[in-house]
Design a protein around this nucleic acid. Sequence first.
DNA 1: GCCTAATTCAAGCAATTGCTTCAATCAAGC
DNA 2: GCTTGATTGAAGCAATTGCTTGAATTAGGC
Lengths: 253, 253
Amino acid sequence: MPTTETLTTPNDDRAGDPAEGSGADAPAGVEGPAHRSGRAGRDTRGRLLDAAERLFGELGYSNVSTRQIAEAAKANVAAAHYHFGSKERLLRAVFERRLAAINAEREGLLADCVRAAGGRPEVGAVLDAFIRPVLRLSETEGGRRFNLLAGRSSTDSNPEVRRVVFEVYDAVGRGFVDAAAAACPQLSREELFWRLACVYGAMMYIRADNGRLQRLFGPEFSLSDVGGALRFALPFLTAGMRAPPAADDPPQP
Amino acid sequence: MPTTETLTTPNDDRAGDPAEGSGADAPAGVEGPAHRSGRAGRDTRGRLLDAAERLFGELGYSNVSTRQIAEAAKANVAAAHYHFGSKERLLRAVFERRLAAINAEREGLLADCVRAAGGRPEVGAVLDAFIRPVLRLSETEGGRRFNLLAGRSSTDSNPEVRRVVFEVYDAVGRGFVDAAAAACPQLSREELFWRLACVYGAMMYIRADNGRLQRLFGPEFSLSDVGGALRFALPFLTAGMRAPPAADDPPQP
DNA sequence: GCCTAATTCAAGCAATTGCTTCAATCAAGC
DNA sequence: GCTTGATTGAAGCAATTGCTTGAATTAGGC
C-alpha cells in the first residue's frame, strides 16, 4: 500500500506554491546560523524541496534516498513523508513549484506572438516563446538545478519519473504542438512530429547539461550558458523548422 | 572493494565480441525448448547480455537488479558476476558489443564522404555518416532495444552509467566533432559547440523513444520508425547545420 | 500558563540491493 | 572412467531502501 492518504498528514495538498524556497533563486548557499525565523524549522517543506531538486538533478531520482534528501535539508526522514506522502509526490512537488511560473510565462509569450501576427504566428516566435523561458531558468542557481532535473528526467526510464513527467508536461506540450502546427501549415502531421522531436530533444539535452560535449570541446563551453543557447541553439532550431518540406522520395540510397 | 579481480573468474576479459546474442538480431522471441546446444547453458553470457540490454533500456540501469537480469536470462545471479564481475561492467559489455560494429560503420561512411569530396566533406554527408547507422539499428528488435538504452543513458545521472557512457563514446565523439568542424569552417568553435549539442540531443531523444511525443500526436507516429527519422529528422538537422552563422548582435530583446 | 493541533524526532520494519561463498555439475582430455 | 578446470546453483551477508510508528516538541489561540 504505497499510497498513504490516512491520518492527519497534510501531505501534498499545498501544491501550487509560487517560486519560494530557501535558496531557490537567491544568490544560493543561504545557509548557516540565521534560519529558523518564524516557527522552529517552519520552512522545512521548502528546504526539502530545495534539497530534493538539487539531489534529484545531480544524482537522479533512483539514486537518491529520502534519507539523503532529509539530511541535506537538515530535516528528518519522517518530515519528508509527512509533508509529501511519498518520494514520487515529492518529485512531483518539485516540478510543480517551478512549472507554474514557467508555463504561465510561456503562454503569455505565445499569446503575444499570436496576437501580434494576427492569428498565424511565425514559427521562430513560437519556438522562442516555449524555449526561452526554460533556458533563462539557468540564469539563477536554483533554476539551473531544476533544468538539470527536468532535462535528465525527460528520458528517465523509472516508471515513477515517467508518470510525473508525462502528467506535469501534458497541457503545455499540447499547446506547443498546436501552436507549431498553426505556424507551419505546409508541414504534414508526420513531418511536424519529427521536427518537434528534434526541437524537444535538443532543448532537453541542453537543459540536462551532462558534460559530455563540454569534455570534447573544453571547459570554456557550457550548455548552462544561457546567452550561447539563445544566440546559437535557438536559431539552429528555427532554421530547421523553416526548412522546406521533405521531398516525396525518401533519400535512402 | 567493489572491484573483484581476484581468483579464477574470467570476468569481462572476453570483451569486443561481434554482434552475437541469442535473439540479438533474429526475429526476436527465439526462446523455448531447443536451447542448450553445445555445452549446458553454453551461451549464458550472451543471454545475460541480451537480458541486460533489454531491461536496462526499458527500466533504467538503477531500476534493474542483477537478480532480475539473471532471471530473465534463465541464469543465476552468480553467473552474472562470474562473467562480468560487476553490474557496471555488465552495462559496459552491453555497450561494447553493439558499438564495435556501429563505430566501424560510421568511420567507413565518414572516410567515404571525405574521400568523395576531396578532403572537405559536405556537412549533410557527415551527419548522415554518424546518424544513419545508429538510427538503422532500430530496424531490428535487438538494435531497437539497444537504442532505447543508449538514448536514455545519454542523460542518465547515475555515476556508473555516466562513467560508462563517457568512456565508451569518447573516441567516436571526437571523430564526429572533428569531421563537423572540417565541414563547417565558417562556424566559430562556440557556434559549432551549440549546433552539435542540438544534433546530439535530437538524435539521443529519438533513440530514447520515451513515448511522450507519441502520446501527443497519436499512436500512428513512433520515434522508432527508421524511415521517418531518416526522411524528416535528418534533413531538419542538416538544415540547421547549413544555416548561416549567427549575427554578431545577440537576438535578446 | 494551559490546550490543541501541527510538526519533528529516534527507532524500527520488511523488502531489496550488489556481491560472495562454497559445493555441485558439466564437458572434455587422457 | 577419472581427472581437471570452467561454469552454475542455493544460500547467505551486510547495507540500504521507502515508509511507518508512537512518543516528544513546538507554537499560537485562549
